[in-house]
Design a binder for these strands. Sequence first.
DNA 1: GACGTTACAATATGATCGTATTGCTACCTG
DNA 2: CAGGTAGCAATACGATCATATTGTAACGTC
Lengths: 201, 201
Amino acid sequence: MTIRVPRQVDHKARRDHITEALLDIVAQRGLEAISLRTVAEQAGVSIGRIQHYFASKDDLLAYAIEYQDWLIQQRWNQQSWPEGDPTPRQALRWLMLQMIPDSSQRRREWLVGVAYLIRMIDSPKLRALYIEGLPRLLDLLAGLIRTAQETGDIAPERDPAREAELLFGIADSQGPPVVLGLRTPQQATETIDYYLDHLFR
Amino acid sequence: MTIRVPRQVDHKARRDHITEALLDIVAQRGLEAISLRTVAEQAGVSIGRIQHYFASKDDLLAYAIEYQDWLIQQRWNQQSWPEGDPTPRQALRWLMLQMIPDSSQRRREWLVGVAYLIRMIDSPKLRALYIEGLPRLLDLLAGLIRTAQETGDIAPERDPAREAELLFGIADSQGPPVVLGLRTPQQATETIDYYLDHLFR
DNA sequence: GACGTTACAATATGATCGTATTGCTACCTG
DNA sequence: CAGGTAGCAATACGATCATATTGTAACGTC
């Protein structure tokens, strides 16, 4: 039997290295600045190498958001929650703070998401990332709200689904002012805490 | 028969016609799709004409957001408020609904705003449109909240500035789900009304 | 009615674009 | 160790790009 010899080069690693360069450019200068030449230069590789690992520019662009989506999933799965067994309020707060672009990593993710947004409208594949991801997050938030209602920490007349939308919206809307430097991540956090203070009692 | 080419031409009308074509393309295919050729084709004019009215592509791009900003100002100034003398709640609701991209006009404005966002980071001129516009709107919202507090319609312990941020955030965050078809403008309105129901009493 | 200027259209230019092609080398398989 | 193939680099190619240049017709002014 022939032993499966590992590939000479790590295919995924090469693709990801190129993709990292692309995402950096997109976050700094937008999709318009993407060309095989600019990506090759940013990645420090030849155009030939990019062509070897990606069938076309479109293929590269498509892989890039999938890669970013994968990156985000990885982070959510790996990052530990605030404390071992957080209260609903702590969990909600933590989830909302995750949405603030307060690190270079999250800032890049946020900007790339914005850059791809117009493309999402006409691309079913891109849209799916949003269409499927958002309800999942909203369900998560609504579940935590329901739990807090059971323990009496949130008034029972609050609608969990609506409240989840509000929480998401409040956190989501911090993106532009934070990225544009109008508000600090600290100030965004204060606004989030202000609302949580009113939601919980 | 000789074609009559009027010597005196409405400069602004020509520039605006070209700019309209550009904004349509940006909203549909993003800034990457902008070239003098695509704009000329969309506008139904020659490249030479565009060059005659704009010194460069950058000049055209810069004029386009200024033009859109002017368009928005015009609409805000001309559009009449809900009723002759609206209550603070009616005014707040109306302002928030104005932010939902529920017409092709507002949808285009929203998408163009998104397309230009990354450019805003490094361009002081573009940033100014956001940096100056947002606080003005927040002040307007906070003022209405304060008025409602004086009449007892909003609890006095609410912080007008914070509440203004929340109202803006809630309305602003409706943009992506509405544009991407995940939520209807009607549903976005319901979420806004839900929050107003809790803010007012 | 000559003259200058405005308002373009048409075309030229050189850079940059995505992609195709070619060539070479190192390694894996037989 | 012969042959094939993966993994590129280099370059060629035609399209498209922003911009510069040139040409021309229609007016306003005199």
